[in-house]
Write a protein that binds this DNA or RNA. Structure first.
Length: 562
RNA sequence: AGCCUCAUAGUGUAAUGGUAACACCCCGGAUUUUGAUUCCGUUAUUCUAGGUUCGAGCCCUAGUGAGGCUACCA
Protein backbone atom coordinates (compact mmCIF):
# COMPACT_ATOMS: atom_id res chain seq x y z
CA UNK A 1 0.00 0.00 0.00
CA UNK A 2 1.25 3.39 -0.85
CA UNK A 3 -0.73 6.48 -1.70
CA UNK A 4 -4.31 6.35 -0.51
CA UNK A 5 -6.36 4.91 -3.32
CA UNK A 6 -9.25 7.34 -3.11
CA UNK A 7 -10.17 8.76 -6.47
CA UNK A 8 -10.02 12.53 -6.70
CA UNK A 9 -13.14 14.46 -5.89
CA UNK A 10 -15.03 15.35 -9.05
CA UNK A 11 -14.41 19.07 -8.95
CA UNK A 12 -16.05 21.58 -11.27
CA UNK A 13 -13.26 21.33 -13.83
CA UNK A 14 -13.47 17.56 -14.05
CA UNK A 15 -17.22 17.92 -14.45
CA UNK A 16 -16.81 20.31 -17.36
CA UNK A 17 -14.38 17.90 -18.97
CA UNK A 18 -16.66 14.93 -18.44
CA UNK A 19 -19.54 16.89 -19.97
CA UNK A 20 -17.45 17.94 -22.98
CA UNK A 21 -16.41 14.36 -23.52
CA UNK A 22 -19.98 13.11 -23.15
CA UNK A 23 -21.24 15.75 -25.56
CA UNK A 24 -18.65 14.74 -28.11
CA UNK A 25 -17.06 18.17 -28.08
CA UNK A 26 -13.67 16.51 -27.90
CA UNK A 27 -12.57 12.97 -28.61
CA UNK A 28 -9.93 13.19 -25.90
CA UNK A 29 -8.51 15.54 -23.30
CA UNK A 30 -5.21 17.35 -23.51
CA UNK A 31 -4.05 19.51 -20.63
CA UNK A 32 -0.77 21.20 -19.97
CA UNK A 33 1.44 22.36 -17.15
CA UNK A 34 3.10 25.57 -18.40
CA UNK A 35 5.67 26.93 -15.92
CA UNK A 36 7.90 29.85 -16.71
CA UNK A 37 11.45 28.66 -16.03
CA UNK A 38 12.27 31.55 -13.75
CA UNK A 39 12.44 29.75 -10.42
CA UNK A 40 11.96 26.46 -8.65
CA UNK A 41 8.61 24.74 -8.32
CA UNK A 42 6.80 24.88 -4.98
CA UNK A 43 3.86 23.17 -3.34
CA UNK A 44 1.51 25.58 -5.10
CA UNK A 45 2.71 24.28 -8.44
CA UNK A 46 2.17 20.76 -7.16
CA UNK A 47 -1.54 21.54 -6.99
CA UNK A 48 -1.55 22.50 -10.66
CA UNK A 49 0.65 19.55 -11.62
CA UNK A 50 -1.62 17.08 -9.83
CA UNK A 51 -4.64 18.67 -11.50
CA UNK A 52 -3.33 18.69 -15.04
CA UNK A 53 -1.42 15.41 -15.04
CA UNK A 54 -4.10 13.85 -12.85
CA UNK A 55 -6.85 14.64 -15.35
CA UNK A 56 -4.75 13.19 -18.15
CA UNK A 57 -4.17 10.03 -16.15
CA UNK A 58 -7.84 9.65 -15.23
CA UNK A 59 -8.83 9.94 -18.88
CA UNK A 60 -6.13 7.66 -20.21
CA UNK A 61 -8.85 5.44 -21.64
CA UNK A 62 -9.59 8.06 -24.31
CA UNK A 63 -5.92 8.78 -24.91
CA UNK A 64 -5.70 11.87 -22.73
CA UNK A 65 -2.32 13.54 -22.27
CA UNK A 66 -0.71 16.32 -20.34
CA UNK A 67 2.04 18.39 -21.88
CA UNK A 68 4.94 19.92 -20.03
CA UNK A 69 5.50 23.27 -21.67
CA UNK A 70 8.01 25.89 -20.68
CA UNK A 71 6.46 29.30 -21.10
CA UNK A 72 9.70 31.01 -21.88
CA UNK A 73 8.75 34.24 -23.58
CA UNK A 74 10.71 36.56 -21.34
CA UNK A 75 14.46 36.04 -21.81
CA UNK A 76 15.37 38.33 -18.94
CA UNK A 77 14.18 36.02 -16.18
CA UNK A 78 14.60 32.55 -17.57
CA UNK A 79 17.46 30.12 -17.14
CA UNK A 80 18.32 26.58 -18.10
CA UNK A 81 18.97 25.71 -14.47
CA UNK A 82 15.29 26.26 -13.80
CA UNK A 83 14.22 24.17 -16.78
CA UNK A 84 16.17 21.22 -15.43
CA UNK A 85 14.96 21.60 -11.87
CA UNK A 86 11.35 21.76 -13.04
CA UNK A 87 11.70 18.54 -15.02
CA UNK A 88 13.29 16.85 -12.02
CA UNK A 89 10.56 17.98 -9.67
CA UNK A 90 7.65 17.01 -11.94
CA UNK A 91 9.17 13.55 -12.33
CA UNK A 92 9.77 13.23 -8.62
CA UNK A 93 6.15 14.08 -7.99
CA UNK A 94 5.36 10.99 -10.01
CA UNK A 95 4.24 12.41 -13.34
CA UNK A 96 5.41 11.81 -16.86
CA UNK A 97 4.99 14.03 -19.91
CA UNK A 98 6.29 11.22 -22.15
CA UNK A 99 7.11 12.82 -25.53
CA UNK A 100 5.16 15.95 -24.87
CA UNK A 101 7.84 18.38 -23.80
CA UNK A 102 7.56 21.79 -25.41
CA UNK A 103 8.99 25.27 -25.32
CA UNK A 104 6.95 28.33 -26.15
CA UNK A 105 10.12 29.71 -27.66
CA UNK A 106 9.97 27.00 -30.32
CA UNK A 107 6.80 28.67 -31.59
CA UNK A 108 8.28 32.14 -32.03
CA UNK A 109 7.98 31.97 -35.82
CA UNK A 110 4.31 31.04 -35.55
CA UNK A 111 3.62 33.86 -33.12
CA UNK A 112 5.24 36.22 -35.57
CA UNK A 113 3.05 34.97 -38.41
CA UNK A 114 -0.03 35.45 -36.27
CA UNK A 115 1.02 38.99 -35.51
CA UNK A 116 1.43 39.69 -39.21
CA UNK A 117 -1.98 38.16 -39.77
CA UNK A 118 -3.54 40.48 -37.21
CA UNK A 119 -1.83 43.50 -38.79
CA UNK A 120 -3.20 42.53 -42.19
CA UNK A 121 -6.69 42.24 -40.70
CA UNK A 122 -6.29 45.72 -39.32
CA UNK A 123 -6.36 44.24 -35.82
CA UNK A 124 -2.85 45.20 -34.74
CA UNK A 125 -0.61 48.22 -35.09
CA UNK A 126 2.83 49.42 -34.18
CA UNK A 127 2.71 51.85 -31.30
CA UNK A 128 5.39 54.50 -30.98
CA UNK A 129 4.20 56.08 -27.78
CA UNK A 130 6.43 55.48 -24.80
CA UNK A 131 5.37 53.10 -22.06
CA UNK A 132 4.57 56.10 -19.93
CA UNK A 133 2.41 57.70 -22.62
CA UNK A 134 0.63 54.42 -23.14
CA UNK A 135 -0.08 54.17 -19.47
CA UNK A 136 -1.60 57.62 -19.36
CA UNK A 137 -3.72 57.10 -22.47
CA UNK A 138 -4.96 53.74 -21.25
CA UNK A 139 -7.15 55.61 -18.78
CA UNK A 140 -8.19 53.92 -15.58
CA UNK A 141 -10.99 51.75 -14.28
CA UNK A 142 -13.52 54.55 -14.43
CA UNK A 143 -12.35 56.56 -17.42
CA UNK A 144 -11.97 55.13 -20.90
CA UNK A 145 -8.63 55.27 -22.64
CA UNK A 146 -7.79 56.87 -25.96
CA UNK A 147 -5.66 55.82 -28.91
CA UNK A 148 -2.55 57.53 -30.19
CA UNK A 149 -2.08 58.51 -33.81
CA UNK A 150 -0.21 55.24 -34.33
CA UNK A 151 -3.52 53.42 -34.35
CA UNK A 152 -4.52 55.08 -37.59
CA UNK A 153 -1.47 54.00 -39.52
CA UNK A 154 -2.28 52.02 -42.67
CA UNK A 155 -1.69 48.29 -42.79
CA UNK A 156 1.29 48.51 -45.16
CA UNK A 157 3.13 50.90 -42.86
CA UNK A 158 2.46 48.68 -39.86
CA UNK A 159 3.77 45.70 -41.75
CA UNK A 160 6.92 47.56 -42.69
CA UNK A 161 7.45 48.86 -39.17
CA UNK A 162 6.89 45.46 -37.60
CA UNK A 163 9.41 44.01 -40.07
CA UNK A 164 11.92 46.57 -38.91
CA UNK A 165 11.19 45.72 -35.29
CA UNK A 166 12.11 42.13 -35.98
CA UNK A 167 15.12 43.17 -38.03
CA UNK A 168 16.53 44.96 -35.03
CA UNK A 169 16.24 48.47 -36.40
CA UNK A 170 14.81 49.80 -33.16
CA UNK A 171 16.22 50.06 -29.71
CA UNK A 172 14.57 48.49 -26.66
CA UNK A 173 11.36 50.27 -25.80
CA UNK A 174 11.20 52.38 -28.94
CA UNK A 175 7.97 50.80 -30.10
CA UNK A 176 5.67 47.84 -29.51
CA UNK A 177 3.03 45.96 -31.44
CA UNK A 178 -0.48 46.32 -30.02
CA UNK A 179 -3.76 44.62 -30.72
CA UNK A 180 -6.56 46.95 -31.78
CA UNK A 181 -9.50 46.01 -29.61
CA UNK A 182 -11.33 48.46 -27.38
CA UNK A 183 -9.79 51.37 -25.50
CA UNK A 184 -13.03 51.92 -23.60
CA UNK A 185 -13.50 48.37 -22.36
CA UNK A 186 -14.26 47.96 -18.68
CA UNK A 187 -11.77 45.12 -18.87
CA UNK A 188 -8.40 46.82 -18.92
CA UNK A 189 -6.85 43.83 -20.65
CA UNK A 190 -8.79 44.68 -23.76
CA UNK A 191 -7.51 48.27 -24.03
CA UNK A 192 -5.22 47.54 -26.97
CA UNK A 193 -2.83 45.17 -25.18
CA UNK A 194 0.81 44.89 -26.16
CA UNK A 195 1.62 41.86 -28.31
CA UNK A 196 5.33 42.28 -28.85
CA UNK A 197 8.04 44.27 -27.21
CA UNK A 198 11.62 44.85 -28.29
CA UNK A 199 14.32 43.23 -26.16
CA UNK A 200 17.83 42.86 -27.39
CA UNK A 201 18.45 40.02 -24.99
CA UNK A 202 19.93 36.54 -25.12
CA UNK A 203 17.35 33.80 -24.81
CA UNK A 204 18.19 30.51 -23.10
CA UNK A 205 16.72 28.57 -26.04
CA UNK A 206 16.72 30.77 -29.14
CA UNK A 207 19.93 32.61 -28.36
CA UNK A 208 20.16 35.86 -30.30
CA UNK A 209 17.79 34.88 -33.10
CA UNK A 210 15.13 37.30 -31.90
CA UNK A 211 15.05 40.82 -30.57
CA UNK A 212 11.28 41.00 -30.26
CA UNK A 213 9.44 38.84 -27.78
CA UNK A 214 5.71 38.09 -27.48
CA UNK A 215 3.73 38.89 -24.37
CA UNK A 216 2.04 36.20 -22.29
CA UNK A 217 -1.51 37.18 -23.26
CA UNK A 218 -0.72 36.87 -26.93
CA UNK A 219 1.52 33.82 -26.80
CA UNK A 220 -0.35 31.63 -24.36
CA UNK A 221 -3.59 31.00 -26.27
CA UNK A 222 -1.56 30.38 -29.42
CA UNK A 223 0.65 27.86 -27.60
CA UNK A 224 -2.42 26.06 -26.32
CA UNK A 225 -4.11 26.03 -29.72
CA UNK A 226 -0.96 24.85 -31.46
CA UNK A 227 -0.69 21.90 -29.09
CA UNK A 228 -4.40 21.14 -29.39
CA UNK A 229 -4.90 21.67 -25.69
CA UNK A 230 -8.59 21.10 -24.99
CA UNK A 231 -8.72 22.58 -21.50
CA UNK A 232 -6.27 25.24 -20.45
CA UNK A 233 -6.31 25.36 -16.67
CA UNK A 234 -4.85 28.35 -14.91
CA UNK A 235 -5.23 30.30 -11.70
CA UNK A 236 -7.83 32.88 -10.78
CA UNK A 237 -5.78 35.97 -11.52
CA UNK A 238 -6.14 35.19 -15.23
CA UNK A 239 -9.93 35.37 -15.13
CA UNK A 240 -9.94 38.85 -16.60
CA UNK A 241 -7.62 37.68 -19.33
CA UNK A 242 -10.03 35.10 -20.68
CA UNK A 243 -11.86 37.50 -23.05
CA UNK A 244 -8.48 38.37 -24.50
CA UNK A 245 -7.51 34.70 -24.68
CA UNK A 246 -10.67 34.03 -26.63
CA UNK A 247 -10.08 37.07 -28.86
CA UNK A 248 -6.75 35.73 -30.02
CA UNK A 249 -8.18 32.26 -30.60
CA UNK A 250 -10.94 33.89 -32.63
CA UNK A 251 -8.77 36.18 -34.70
CA UNK A 252 -5.62 34.19 -35.34
CA UNK A 253 -5.20 31.27 -37.76
CA UNK A 254 -5.04 28.58 -35.07
CA UNK A 255 -5.63 24.84 -35.53
CA UNK A 256 -7.85 24.31 -32.46
CA UNK A 257 -9.99 26.15 -29.95
CA UNK A 258 -8.87 25.53 -26.38
CA UNK A 259 -10.91 26.70 -23.44
CA UNK A 260 -9.41 28.47 -20.46
CA UNK A 261 -10.76 27.55 -17.02
CA UNK A 262 -9.55 29.16 -13.81
CA UNK A 263 -9.20 27.73 -10.32
CA UNK A 264 -7.91 29.09 -7.01
CA UNK A 265 -4.19 28.93 -6.39
CA UNK A 266 -2.92 27.30 -3.21
CA UNK A 267 -2.15 29.47 -0.26
CA UNK A 268 -0.69 27.82 2.85
CA UNK A 269 -0.64 29.21 6.36
CA UNK A 270 2.78 30.13 7.84
CA UNK A 271 4.30 29.81 4.42
CA UNK A 272 5.90 32.01 1.78
CA UNK A 273 4.73 31.00 -1.64
CA UNK A 274 5.59 33.91 -3.89
CA UNK A 275 8.39 33.21 -6.32
CA UNK A 276 9.70 36.70 -5.80
CA UNK A 277 10.11 36.20 -2.06
CA UNK A 278 11.51 32.70 -2.39
CA UNK A 279 14.06 34.09 -4.82
CA UNK A 280 14.90 36.82 -2.34
CA UNK A 281 15.41 34.30 0.47
CA UNK A 282 17.75 32.30 -1.72
CA UNK A 283 19.67 35.22 -3.19
CA UNK A 284 20.14 36.97 0.13
CA UNK A 285 21.20 33.66 1.63
CA UNK A 286 18.66 33.58 4.41
CA UNK A 287 18.34 29.93 3.51
CA UNK A 288 20.58 27.11 2.37
CA UNK A 289 19.42 27.22 -1.24
CA UNK A 290 16.27 26.38 -3.16
CA UNK A 291 16.17 23.00 -1.44
CA UNK A 292 16.44 24.32 2.10
CA UNK A 293 14.15 21.97 3.99
CA UNK A 294 12.26 24.86 5.53
CA UNK A 295 11.17 26.11 2.14
CA UNK A 296 7.89 24.98 0.53
CA UNK A 297 9.70 24.27 -2.72
CA UNK A 298 9.28 20.78 -4.11
CA UNK A 299 12.97 20.07 -3.68
CA UNK A 300 12.88 21.55 -0.17
CA UNK A 301 10.00 19.30 0.81
CA UNK A 302 11.81 16.37 -0.75
CA UNK A 303 14.94 17.07 1.26
CA UNK A 304 12.79 17.50 4.33
CA UNK A 305 11.53 14.00 3.79
CA UNK A 306 8.02 14.65 2.53
CA UNK A 307 7.04 11.74 0.28
CA UNK A 308 5.75 12.63 -3.17
CA UNK A 309 2.71 10.43 -2.58
CA UNK A 310 1.83 12.46 0.51
CA UNK A 311 1.94 15.66 -1.53
CA UNK A 312 -0.33 14.06 -4.10
CA UNK A 313 -2.70 12.97 -1.33
CA UNK A 314 -2.72 16.51 -0.01
CA UNK A 315 -3.60 17.90 -3.42
CA UNK A 316 -6.52 15.51 -3.61
CA UNK A 317 -7.64 16.46 -0.14
CA UNK A 318 -7.80 20.20 -0.77
CA UNK A 319 -9.71 19.86 -4.02
CA UNK A 320 -10.20 22.38 -6.78
CA UNK A 321 -12.54 25.35 -6.43
CA UNK A 322 -12.74 29.03 -7.20
CA UNK A 323 -12.68 29.97 -3.55
CA UNK A 324 -9.68 31.99 -2.52
CA UNK A 325 -8.79 30.72 0.93
CA UNK A 326 -5.79 29.78 3.00
CA UNK A 327 -5.21 26.13 3.68
CA UNK A 328 -3.76 25.25 7.07
CA UNK A 329 -0.43 23.44 6.84
CA UNK A 330 -1.93 20.98 9.32
CA UNK A 331 -3.72 19.39 6.38
CA UNK A 332 -0.43 18.88 4.59
CA UNK A 333 1.28 17.59 7.72
CA UNK A 334 -1.52 15.12 8.26
CA UNK A 335 -1.01 13.55 4.85
CA UNK A 336 2.71 13.36 5.43
CA UNK A 337 2.30 11.71 8.83
CA UNK A 338 -0.40 9.46 7.45
CA UNK A 339 1.79 8.24 4.61
CA UNK A 340 4.93 7.92 6.71
CA UNK A 341 3.03 6.07 9.42
CA UNK A 342 1.96 3.47 6.89
CA UNK A 343 5.21 3.21 4.99
CA UNK A 344 8.14 3.95 7.26
CA UNK A 345 9.89 1.26 9.24
CA UNK A 346 10.50 2.04 12.87
CA UNK A 347 14.00 2.64 14.19
CA UNK A 348 15.41 3.73 17.51
CA UNK A 349 17.46 6.79 18.19
CA UNK A 350 18.30 9.04 21.09
CA UNK A 351 18.68 12.74 20.46
CA UNK A 352 19.67 13.89 23.91
CA UNK A 353 21.36 10.90 25.50
CA UNK A 354 21.77 9.93 29.12
CA UNK A 355 23.55 6.71 29.95
CA UNK A 356 21.80 3.96 31.87
CA UNK A 357 23.99 1.33 33.52
CA UNK A 358 22.21 -1.97 34.03
CA UNK A 359 24.02 -3.21 37.10
CA UNK A 360 22.68 -6.74 37.13
CA UNK A 361 22.97 -7.26 33.37
CA UNK A 362 24.75 -10.56 33.92
CA UNK A 363 21.58 -11.93 35.52
CA UNK A 364 20.09 -12.32 32.03
CA UNK A 365 22.41 -10.90 29.37
CA UNK A 366 20.98 -10.57 25.88
CA UNK A 367 23.02 -10.52 22.68
CA UNK A 368 20.34 -8.55 20.96
CA UNK A 369 16.74 -7.45 21.24
CA UNK A 370 14.16 -8.54 18.69
CA UNK A 371 12.27 -5.48 17.53
CA UNK A 372 9.45 -5.25 15.05
CA UNK A 373 9.99 -2.95 12.08
CA UNK A 374 6.37 -1.95 12.13
CA UNK A 375 4.08 -3.31 14.84
CA UNK A 376 0.96 -2.72 12.72
CA UNK A 377 2.45 -4.30 9.64
CA UNK A 378 4.10 -7.65 10.35
CA UNK A 379 5.00 -7.97 6.67
CA UNK A 380 7.77 -5.49 7.28
CA UNK A 381 9.45 -8.01 9.54
CA UNK A 382 11.74 -7.31 12.42
CA UNK A 383 15.38 -6.78 13.23
CA UNK A 384 17.90 -7.65 15.87
CA UNK A 385 19.32 -4.72 17.75
CA UNK A 386 22.52 -5.39 19.69
CA UNK A 387 22.25 -4.62 23.36
CA UNK A 388 24.56 -4.70 26.36
CA UNK A 389 24.63 -3.63 29.97
CA UNK A 390 24.89 0.05 29.11
CA UNK A 391 22.37 1.91 27.00
CA UNK A 392 21.54 5.48 26.06
CA UNK A 393 18.04 6.75 26.71
CA UNK A 394 16.40 10.08 26.00
CA UNK A 395 17.01 12.65 28.70
CA UNK A 396 13.34 13.57 28.80
CA UNK A 397 12.42 9.94 29.46
CA UNK A 398 13.78 10.30 33.02
CA UNK A 399 12.44 12.66 35.63
CA UNK A 400 13.82 13.04 39.10
CA UNK A 401 10.53 14.30 40.41
CA UNK A 402 7.88 13.16 37.95
CA UNK A 403 4.38 14.66 37.87
CA UNK A 404 1.22 12.63 38.23
CA UNK A 405 0.83 11.32 34.70
CA UNK A 406 4.43 10.65 33.81
CA UNK A 407 4.81 6.97 32.99
CA UNK A 408 8.48 6.71 32.19
CA UNK A 409 11.59 6.39 34.29
CA UNK A 410 12.30 8.02 37.66
CA UNK A 411 13.82 7.04 40.97
CA UNK A 412 12.49 3.66 42.06
CA UNK A 413 10.32 3.45 38.93
CA UNK A 414 9.96 0.85 36.21
CA UNK A 415 9.95 1.23 32.45
CA UNK A 416 10.43 -1.15 29.55
CA UNK A 417 13.30 -0.86 27.12
CA UNK A 418 11.44 -1.45 23.92
CA UNK A 419 11.96 -5.03 22.76
CA UNK A 420 13.93 -5.78 25.91
CA UNK A 421 13.66 -5.94 29.67
CA UNK A 422 11.63 -3.98 32.11
CA UNK A 423 14.16 -2.07 34.17
CA UNK A 424 14.00 -0.57 37.61
CA UNK A 425 15.86 2.62 38.45
CA UNK A 426 17.92 2.23 41.59
CA UNK A 427 19.83 5.52 41.64
CA UNK A 428 21.17 8.36 39.53
CA UNK A 429 23.90 10.97 39.50
CA UNK A 430 23.73 14.70 38.85
CA UNK A 431 26.36 17.30 38.12
CA UNK A 432 26.72 20.68 39.83
CA UNK A 433 24.01 22.17 37.63
CA UNK A 434 21.52 19.52 38.64
CA UNK A 435 21.79 17.84 35.27
CA UNK A 436 21.40 14.08 35.31
CA UNK A 437 24.64 12.46 34.20
CA UNK A 438 24.09 8.78 34.86
CA UNK A 439 21.25 6.47 35.73
CA UNK A 440 21.72 3.16 37.50
CA UNK A 441 19.12 0.48 37.04
CA UNK A 442 18.47 -3.21 37.25
CA UNK A 443 16.85 -5.46 34.72
CA UNK A 444 13.95 -7.64 35.76
CA UNK A 445 14.95 -11.07 34.47
CA UNK A 446 12.21 -12.88 32.63
CA UNK A 447 10.41 -9.78 31.40
CA UNK A 448 11.61 -9.83 27.80
CA UNK A 449 8.54 -10.41 25.68
CA UNK A 450 6.46 -10.92 28.82
CA UNK A 451 4.05 -8.77 30.75
CA UNK A 452 5.18 -7.02 33.87
CA UNK A 453 5.20 -9.32 36.86
CA UNK A 454 2.60 -9.00 39.59
CA UNK A 455 3.03 -5.81 41.57
CA UNK A 456 5.27 -4.04 39.07
CA UNK A 457 3.81 -0.88 37.63
CA UNK A 458 5.14 -0.38 34.08
CA UNK A 459 3.04 1.58 31.68
CA UNK A 460 5.56 2.69 29.10
CA UNK A 461 8.21 1.39 26.75
CA UNK A 462 11.00 3.75 25.79
CA UNK A 463 13.46 3.74 22.96
CA UNK A 464 17.13 3.25 23.59
CA UNK A 465 20.44 2.77 21.83
CA UNK A 466 23.11 0.35 22.96
CA UNK A 467 26.10 2.28 24.28
CA UNK A 468 28.59 -0.26 22.95
CA UNK A 469 27.35 -0.48 19.38
CA UNK A 470 25.31 2.70 18.86
CA UNK A 471 26.36 5.00 16.07
CA UNK A 472 26.77 8.76 16.21
CA UNK A 473 24.67 10.55 13.67
CA UNK A 474 24.08 14.14 12.80
CA UNK A 475 20.46 15.17 13.03
CA UNK A 476 19.13 18.40 11.69
CA UNK A 477 16.13 19.73 13.52
CA UNK A 478 13.62 22.26 12.33
CA UNK A 479 9.93 22.74 12.61
CA UNK A 480 7.92 25.30 10.73
CA UNK A 481 8.39 26.60 7.25
CA UNK A 482 9.37 30.14 6.54
CA UNK A 483 6.81 32.82 6.99
CA UNK A 484 6.45 36.49 6.29
CA UNK A 485 5.57 38.88 9.05
CA UNK A 486 3.65 41.28 6.85
CA UNK A 487 3.71 40.31 3.21
CA UNK A 488 2.03 43.50 2.04
CA UNK A 489 3.77 46.04 4.19
CA UNK A 490 4.46 49.38 2.57
CA UNK A 491 8.19 48.79 2.82
CA UNK A 492 7.88 45.70 0.71
CA UNK A 493 7.42 43.28 3.59
CA UNK A 494 9.88 41.85 6.02
CA UNK A 495 10.93 38.28 5.77
CA UNK A 496 11.19 36.57 9.12
CA UNK A 497 11.79 33.08 10.30
CA UNK A 498 9.09 31.75 12.57
CA UNK A 499 11.56 29.80 14.63
CA UNK A 500 15.04 31.27 14.53
CA UNK A 501 16.43 28.12 16.11
CA UNK A 502 15.32 26.10 13.15
CA UNK A 503 17.82 24.03 11.32
CA UNK A 504 20.05 23.51 14.30
CA UNK A 505 22.12 20.39 14.32
CA UNK A 506 22.48 17.92 17.16
CA UNK A 507 24.50 14.79 17.54
CA UNK A 508 22.36 11.77 18.18
CA UNK A 509 22.87 8.11 18.96
CA UNK A 510 21.23 5.77 16.50
CA UNK A 511 20.99 2.03 16.29
CA UNK A 512 23.55 0.35 14.01
CA UNK A 513 20.99 -0.54 11.34
CA UNK A 514 20.74 3.12 10.48
CA UNK A 515 24.39 3.71 9.80
CA UNK A 516 23.89 2.23 6.35
CA UNK A 517 20.72 4.13 5.53
CA UNK A 518 20.40 5.13 1.90
CA UNK A 519 19.74 8.76 1.06
CA UNK A 520 16.02 9.31 1.02
CA UNK A 521 15.35 6.47 3.41
CA UNK A 522 12.72 7.53 5.87
CA UNK A 523 11.90 5.98 9.20
CA UNK A 524 10.13 6.78 12.41
CA UNK A 525 12.23 7.35 15.47
CA UNK A 526 10.01 6.17 18.21
CA UNK A 527 8.22 8.85 20.13
CA UNK A 528 10.35 11.51 18.49
CA UNK A 529 9.23 11.92 14.91
CA UNK A 530 9.79 10.91 11.33
CA UNK A 531 13.24 11.25 9.93
CA UNK A 532 14.75 11.00 6.52
CA UNK A 533 18.30 10.27 5.59
CA UNK A 534 19.21 13.49 3.84
CA UNK A 535 18.92 13.21 0.13
CA UNK A 536 21.56 15.81 -0.53
CA UNK A 537 24.21 15.73 2.14
CA UNK A 538 24.40 12.07 2.87
CA UNK A 539 27.12 10.37 0.88
CA UNK A 540 27.34 6.59 0.95
CA UNK A 541 29.87 5.44 3.48
CA UNK A 542 29.86 8.77 5.28
CA UNK A 543 28.43 9.43 8.67
CA UNK A 544 24.66 9.40 8.28
CA UNK A 545 22.80 12.69 8.36
CA UNK A 546 19.12 12.75 9.19
CA UNK A 547 16.54 15.44 8.87
CA UNK A 548 13.63 15.50 11.18
CA UNK A 549 10.66 15.42 8.90
CA UNK A 550 7.41 15.61 10.79
CA UNK A 551 7.03 15.40 14.52
CA UNK A 552 4.73 12.87 16.08
CA UNK A 553 1.85 14.20 18.06
CA UNK A 554 2.68 14.62 21.70
CA UNK A 555 0.18 13.83 24.37
CA UNK A 556 1.29 16.82 26.42
CA UNK A 557 -0.58 18.96 23.98
CA UNK A 558 2.19 20.05 21.67
CA UNK A 559 4.39 18.67 18.97
CA UNK A 560 7.07 16.40 20.30
CA UNK A 561 10.35 18.19 20.62
CA UNK A 562 8.88 21.57 19.76
C1' A B 1 -14.35 54.33 -8.10
C1' G B 2 -15.75 50.80 -12.73
C1' C B 3 -15.69 45.72 -14.32
C1' C B 4 -14.93 40.41 -13.24
C1' U B 5 -14.90 36.38 -9.57
C1' C B 6 -15.88 34.24 -4.91
C1' A B 7 -18.69 33.53 0.09
C1' U B 8 -21.05 26.32 3.71
C1' A B 9 -18.08 24.37 11.31
C1' G B 10 -11.55 27.15 13.41
C1' U B 11 -9.26 25.15 8.26
C1' G B 12 -10.11 22.72 3.37
C1' U B 13 -14.12 20.69 0.75
C1' A B 14 -19.45 17.81 -0.26
C1' A B 15 -24.63 18.29 -0.90
C1' U B 16 -30.38 16.52 -9.37
C1' G B 17 -34.53 23.07 -5.70
C1' G B 18 -36.32 18.22 -1.02
C1' U B 19 -33.45 15.83 6.50
C1' A B 20 -26.56 20.28 5.65
C1' A B 21 -22.15 16.16 5.32
C1' C B 22 -16.82 14.45 4.98
C1' A B 23 -11.67 15.23 6.21
C1' C B 24 -8.15 18.03 9.10
C1' C B 25 -7.56 20.70 13.72
C1' C B 26 -9.25 20.90 18.95
C1' C B 27 -11.17 18.31 23.24
C1' G B 28 -12.70 13.62 25.84
C1' G B 29 -12.63 8.18 26.31
C1' A B 30 -10.92 2.84 25.10
C1' U B 31 -6.88 -0.29 23.37
C1' U B 32 -1.47 -0.11 22.98
C1' U B 33 5.90 -3.17 24.39
C1' U B 34 5.95 4.06 20.33
C1' G B 35 2.13 9.15 25.41
C1' A B 36 2.36 7.22 18.00
C1' U B 37 -1.02 4.26 15.33
C1' U B 38 -6.01 2.16 15.75
C1' C B 39 -11.09 2.60 17.68
C1' C B 40 -15.21 5.42 19.82
C1' G B 41 -17.21 10.02 21.11
C1' U B 42 -18.05 15.69 21.99
C1' U B 43 -18.35 20.77 20.23
C1' A B 44 -19.40 23.73 16.01
C1' U B 45 -21.59 25.43 9.73
C1' U B 46 -24.91 27.78 4.82
C1' C B 47 -22.30 36.42 5.18
C1' U B 48 -26.90 39.92 5.68
C1' A B 49 -31.76 41.57 3.98
C1' G B 50 -35.54 40.93 0.72
C1' G B 51 -37.89 38.02 -3.32
C1' U B 52 -39.48 33.45 -6.42
C1' U B 53 -41.25 28.52 -4.67
C1' C B 54 -45.28 23.80 -1.29
C1' G B 55 -40.00 23.86 -0.24
C1' A B 56 -33.70 27.82 -1.18
C1' G B 57 -26.86 26.46 0.80
C1' C B 58 -28.41 26.12 -4.42
C1' C B 59 -32.55 30.53 -8.44
C1' C B 60 -33.37 36.40 -8.58
C1' U B 61 -32.31 41.52 -6.46
C1' A B 62 -29.70 44.60 -3.18
C1' G B 63 -26.11 45.06 0.51
C1' U B 64 -21.63 43.41 3.12
C1' G B 65 -16.92 41.08 3.02
C1' A B 66 -12.69 38.90 0.28
C1' G B 67 -9.70 38.38 -4.24
C1' G B 68 -8.37 40.06 -9.24
C1' C B 69 -7.59 43.96 -13.17
C1' U B 70 -5.37 49.92 -14.42
C1' A B 71 3.14 45.81 -16.59
C1' C B 72 6.82 46.74 -22.94
C1' C B 73 5.97 40.17 -16.11
C1' A B 74 3.80 35.38 -16.23
Amino acid sequence: MSESATSPKPDFIREIIADDLAAGKHATVITRFPPEPNGYLHIGHAKSICLNFGIARENAAVGAKCHLRFDDTNPEKEETEYVESIKTDVKWLGFDWADDLYFASDYFEFFYDCAVHLIKQGLAYVEQDSAEEMRVKRGNVTTPGSRSKSAERPVEENLALFGKMRAGEFKDGECVLRAKIDMASSNMNLRDPVLYRIMHAHHHNTGDAWCIYPMYDFAHPLEDALEHITHSLCTLEFENHRPLYDWFIQNCPVPSKPRQIEFARLSLSYTVMSKRKLLQLVQEKHVDGWDDPRLPTICGLRRRGYPAAAIRDFCKRIGITKFNGTTDVALLEFDVRDFLNRESPRRMAVLDPVKVVLENWSAEPLGHADVSNHPQNPDMGGRQVPVSGEVWIEREDFMEDPPKKFYRLGPDRHVRLRGGHIIHCTSFEKDADGRVTLIRAEILPGTVGKDAPEGVRCKAAIHWVDAATGVDAEVRLYDRLFSVEDPDAADGGFLTVLNPDSLKTVNAKVEPALAAAEPGFSCQFERVGYFVADSRDHEPGAKPVFNRSVALKDSWGRRAGA
